[in-house]
Every structure is written in structure tokens, then in C-alpha cells.
């Protein structure tokens, strides 16, 4: 576990900690929706009294596997960042050490899968080698933050039309797009292995997504991450219109 800031935590100023997964070639860990198989990592935080951890900011995953079983996850390296909120009662100038620990359960797969556990700790303010490395970590945090899906620009519009077999996701953008792909946040909504067909439109584009055979009842919003060419990624929750 690593921290981006070297300074002591201050009241009212959340800071980021990250769990860095270094993966051997060919191995992967999973996104928050693992896809057809696999399981995302889970984190149990141990924080000093009054401190609170926020949700992980998942970077945009990649499609893993081929054929009829498609997963979503990360290869080679991924930093999972979470914000830590210090308590309001913390006095300014308070410099006592803050110990942060995480118990991580994760599944790591290549052809086989291995369920694994890890325990990681960091102490703030950083000292010694950790303090020396803080600058280097900052670069890694910034790079990772650029890979975290953003909110959709306010002048863009998304809507999903639901027909018998597909969700047709219409996206109205500011500029024409040439390519897009969608990662579903919820399981059993779209068929992960089905091709996503892209069609440019005058004011944006349409993406046709095959419904999952396991989709049991109608959904009201199609939630997920939309990745455009050049890799800007946006978090969307497209209202679903039944047709």
C-alpha cells in the first residue's frame, strides 16, 4: 500500500491511498464487475478512530479472454485508489502517526485462478524511504487518476432503448466519435462476449449491446463505463426506454 501525500492528515482534507498490484505476465485481477467469471478484490480497512475510507475509484478495465467467456480486469499493474477522510475533530497541526491497514482478498487468474489474501500498511506522515518515494508515487497516482472514468460532460446525453434482443445506447456528444465500447457495471445485463456494434450518428453515435440471456427483469438504467477512441472514459447511467 502506498500514499500519495507525505504530510500528516488534516481535518476536512481527504487524502488518497492506493493498493498497487504488480502482476506477473499473463496474470490478471478483476474490475468491480468481473464479467463472466472471476471476482473483484475486496478490501477491509483498519483505520484509526474517526477515520473513514471511501469507495475504490476503479480505473477503466480491459476486456480479458476470448470466445464466449469475457472478463473485465487488469493485467501487469493496477493501482486501486481510495480516499481516506480524517475526522473533523482532528486538530490542525496534529502530527501524530496515522496507521492505515488493509486486508485484501483477491482472485488472481491466468489459466488457473488462485484466491489470495494480502495485508498492507502505511503510516503517515511518511518517513524514510517511503517519504523519498512519495514524488514517484505521486506520478503513479496522477497517471491512474487519468484512467478513472469521468462524469459525462453536462451537454452530452445518453439514453438506452430496450428492444427484444438488444439495448441500443444512443450518445449525444459535442464532437463526432469514431469508436466506442461499453463496460457494464451490473452483471447479467448485457452479453459480455457479444460484439458491440458502433454506428456514428449526426450528433453522436449509437452502440448496440446484446442483452444477457440471464437478464431476468427490465432495468431502469443501463449503468457502466463508456470508453471512446483515444481512451477518454465516462461513467454513465443511461435511462432505459422500453420499446
Amino acid at each position: 500500500m502506498i500514499a500519495a501525500q507525505a504530510a500528516p492528515p488534516q481535518s476536512g482534507r481527504p487524502f488518497s491511498v492506493g493498493l498497487l498490484f504488480h502482476l506477473e505476465p499473463g496474470w490478471h485481477v478483476y474490475w468491480q464487475n468481473a464479467g463472466d467469471s472471476g471476482q473483484p478484490p475486496t478490501i477491509q480497512w483498519s483505520l484509526p478512530p474517526g477515520f473513514r475510507a471511501g469507495a475504490i475509484a476503479w480505473p477503466t478495465p480491459t476486456r480479458l479472454g476470448k470466445g464466449s467467456v469475457i472478463d473485465y480486469g487488469y493485467e501487469s499493474q493496477v493501482l486501486l485508489i481510495a480516499p481516506i477522510h480524517p475526522p473533523a475533530s482532528r486538530k490542525s497541526g496534529q502530527t501524530d502517526a496515522v496507521e492505515i491497514a488493509a486486508d485484501i482478498k483477491y482472485l488472481i487468474c491466468r489459466e488457473i485462478c488462485i484466491p489470495a489474501k494480502a495485508h498492507a500498511t502505511v503510516s503517515l506522515p511518511l518517513s524514510g524511504d517511503a517519504a523519498k518515494q512519495a514524488t514517484q508515487w505521486r506520478t503513479l497516482f496522477e497517471r491512474t487518476e487519468s484512467q478513472i472514468p469521468k462524469r459525462l460532460p453536462s451537454d452530452w446525453k445518453v439514453v438506452a432503448r430496450s428492444n427484444a434482443d438488444n439495448f441500443v445506447l444512443s450518445v449525444r456528444t459535442a464532437a463526432p466519435a469514431t469508436q466506442a465500447s461499453f463496460f457494464p457495471l451490473d452483471q447479467n445485463v448485457i452479453e459480455n462476449s457479444a460484439p458491440q456494434s458502433f454506428a456514428p450518428a449526426k450528433t453522436g453515435f449509437q452502440l448496440t449491446l446484446k442483452k444477457s440471456d440471464l437478464l431476468a427483469k427490465p432495468i431502469t438504467a443501463l449503468r457502466g463505463v463508456l470508453v471512446l477512441e483515444g481512451n477518454p472514459a465516462y461513467e454513465i447511467a443511461a435511462p432505459v426506454i422500453q420499446q
Partner: peptide, 8 residues
């Protein structure tokens, strides 16, 4: 229907 879980 549920989402099956396990190895691919």
C-alpha cells in the same frame, strides 16, 4: 437465473 461464479 443468477450470475454463475467461478473460473472460466
Amino acid at each position: 437465473t443468477t450470475r454463475p461464479y467461478g473460473c472460466s
